Amino acid sequence: MNAPARHESYVLEDGEKPVELIEDTKIPNAATIKIVKQDHTLGNMLRAQLLSMPQILFAGYKVPHPLHPYFIIKIQTDGTVTPQEILEQACTKLIGTLSSLETKFRREFSYKDMESSGAGAVTSHVEDPYGTNSGAWGRGREYLDF
């Protein structure tokens, strides 16, 4: 049909740049960044990470058309750092957050494997991550308590 081949949405072609920075001449300390072969998943995570940083005055993204595999993110800083530097910092923090999340998931699933293997003595001190058996909801704990 009209949709491009699936691999065209994610595989960079020879010589294609994954990131293109365009400095904004009308707004101080601002830039527009085009990130190719990505979609809402990365765009929303980057925007959220940027907005959590104190140097950011504005961060927003858009996907101009669903059939074109890129998004545009606009960043404005307070002038202490450039938009390019703050984007690099946000990417580094996001990678660290995702790495930490992966470690926590692997740990929780290893606990689940120990429980299902029949080790009765192990299950008595293993914390239930979902709070279904231990009454964790009543103790004011968050879901999965990151």
Rank of each mutant, 00 (worst) to 15 (best):
D39S: 10
D39W: 02
D39I: 00
D39L: 03
H40W: 01
H40M: 00
H40P: 01
T41F: 06
T41I: 08
L42T: 02
L42Y: 01
G43H: 00
G43W: 01
N44C: 03
N44Y: 06
N44P: 00
N44T: 09
M45I: 08
M45F: 10
L46W: 03
L46N: 04
R47H: 03
R47M: 11
R47W: 01
A48I: 11
A48V: 12
A48W: 09
A48N: 10
A48G: 03
Q49I: 01
Q49E: 14
Q49Y: 00
Q49A: 12
Q49G: 04
Q49P: 02
Q49F: 00
L51P: 05
S52F: 00
S52N: 13
S52A: 15
M53K: 10
M53E: 10
M53V: 05
P54C: 02
P54T: 08
P54Y: 02
P54N: 08
Q55M: 12
Q55I: 08
Q55C: 07
Q55E: 15
Q55N: 13
Q55Y: 07
Q55F: 04
I56E: 00
I56A: 01
L57M: 14
L57Q: 15
L57W: 03
L57S: 10
F58R: 06
F58I: 08
F58Q: 10
A59E: 01
A59N: 06
A59Q: 05
A59H: 07
A59M: 09
G60N: 09
Y61W: 14
Y61C: 05
Y61E: 04
Y61N: 06
Y61L: 06
Y61F: 14
Y61S: 11
K62N: 14
K62E: 15
K62G: 09
K62A: 12
K62D: 14
V63H: 13
V63K: 15
V63M: 12
V63W: 03
P64F: 09
P64M: 08
H65E: 11
H65G: 03
P66Q: 06
P66M: 05
P66E: 07
P66D: 05
P66W: 08
P66V: 05
P66S: 06
P66Y: 06
L67P: 03
L67W: 04
L67I: 13
H68A: 13
H68R: 14
H68D: 15
H68C: 08
H68W: 10
H68I: 10
